[in-house]
């Protein structure tokens, strides 16, 4: 269980140096942040880079900060950093709620949110959270910089729009203002399991809703039909049932090692109901505290 494939290792001290290395090696370079995905892939021989570029020598990339009305989460911010950030807990409580249930403490101490969306597995918990909060991925290369809306980021399982030579500097989330939300994650046991399915709901001012699903499609996906149904309306029990009924149309769960398609589909309806009700009650200042398990 060692790494059989040799590679070069560089730890640049600036973004500029990192971009030079990425430009020089193109698809032969892999970027290392926390390593909780990449090192496992190196051990398994799934990736065989010429060079591993460790970002941890670049200052400031670990920062979580407010810039005017945008929350910036640097590429090196770990799940623990995000979970313990007073800024995130205040401004993006559903993101904080999600980080508490990612893997285990030992993985959260190392793994990063940016790494999570770059690995882009269908069950990545950061995807639905960034979808509901309208996050953008800040990408830089030797040619320039671009901000990719998260809705355009994922292109398939383990695939994103990130091109060789490009580096993600962080994610940027607009301040959503007063809101309520819920991240409901189903897994086989409490602790560190990957999501069998997840439903995220966010209620913004003016009864605008944002809905997203994880682990039930090739990528994290937004629940556009439910968002449209709920738009501008006050949540009533009848409306909740209409939204629950739409869940089957929004998602395409499969049977795999963690669950059957039928169980996922059934539980998605349960989770949708609880996510909507919790989001609405939290926005009203009631409801279960963030971090309370809803299933």
């Amino acid at each position: 269980m060692a790494i059989a494939h040799p590679f070069l290792y560089e730890k640049p001290g600036t973004v500029k140096q990192a971009l030079q290395l990425l430009a020089q090696h193109g698809a032969g370079a892999r970027v290392l942040a926390g390593g909780t995905d990449l090192v496992g892939q190196l051990v398994d021989g799934l990736v065989r880079p010429e060079i591993v570029v460790d970002l941890k020598g670049v200052p400031d990339l670990q920062e979580i900060r407010m810039e005017k009305d945008v929350i910036h989460i640097g590429a090196l911010a770990t799940f623990t950093d995000i979970m313990e950030s007073p800024l995130i807990r205040k401004k993006l409580p559903v993101m904080a709620e999600m980080t508490e249930w990612v893997a285990s403490r030992g993985v959260r101490n190392r793994g990063t949110m940016v790494g999570n969306i770059c690995s882009a597995v269908p069950c990545c918990d950061s995807g639905p959270i960034l979808l509901v909060y309208g996050g953008k991925v800040l990408v830089k290369s030797a040619r320039g910089q671009r901000a990719v809306p998260i809705a355009q980021w994922f292109t398939g399982p383990r695939r994103t729009v990130l091109a060789p030579g490009e580096l993600v500097l962080g994610v940027r989330v607009p301040d959503p203002g007063k809101h309520g939300g819920a991240f409901v994650k189903m897994r086989r046991y409490k602790g560190e399991d990957l999501a069998q399915a997840s439903v995220t709901a966010l209620l913004l001012a003016g009864n605008q809703w944002r809905i997203a699903f994880g682990s039930v499609a090739p990528t994290p996906i937004a629940g556009k039909r439910v968002e449209k149904l709920l738009h501008g309306k006050r949540l009533t029990p009848a409306l909740v049932e209409e939204a629950v009924a739409l869940t089957d149309q929004e998602t395409a769960p499969i049977t795999d090692i963690r669950s059957t398609r039928e169980y996922r589909a059934h539980m998605l309806r349960v989770m949708m109901r609880r996510a909507l009700e919790a989001a609405a009650s939290r926005k009203a200042g009631r409801g279960p505290a963030y971090g309370t398990e809803l299933i």
């Binding site: 730890k11 909780t36 623990t80 403490r105 030992g106």
Partner: peptide, 13 residues
């Protein structure tokens, strides 16, 4: 002071 997985960390790190 923080727990990490030494099987997922390069010695270089």
């Amino acid at each position: 002071g923080r727990s990490i997985r030494s099987c997922l960390v390069l010695a270089a790190e």
